[in-house]
Write a protein that binds this DNA or RNA. Sequence first.
DNA 1: CGCAGATGGCTAG
DNA 2: CTAGCCATCTGCG
Length: 109
Amino acid sequence: MKRSPTVFEQSVYDLVSKIPTGKVVTYAAMARALDCGSAQAIGQALKRNPFAPEVPCHRVIKTDLTIGGYAGKTDGAKLKKKFSLLSGEGVEFDREGGLLDPLTVHDFK
DNA sequence: CGCAGATGGCTAG
DNA sequence: CTAGCCATCTGCG
């Protein structure tokens, strides 16, 4: 199923791909950077992620600075993996999925 | 604090 | 064009 990534999706992947290692972004931040105002669309684009491992969707968290979900789920063993990945990049989360350092959130502004 | 509704854009038919 | 989807967000009880 070849999906033709829309300009909107490409922008999302481009932003995610621009996230420096050891930092994360919130859906709202990307939506704001894209000037679309919808984090839902971002979530879908990331879930569809045609650019899979090239676009680290695990660096995208909710606006509440929480992990939110991953791989299309809000919980699961994948989340645990996410903790390890982010932790290895310098991003530490609480066992509840909350970001310990708010400075870890990248800013597209 | 918890749930339901509204939101904005994507995919499929 | 219409209907359903989603990893959300906001408001209300």
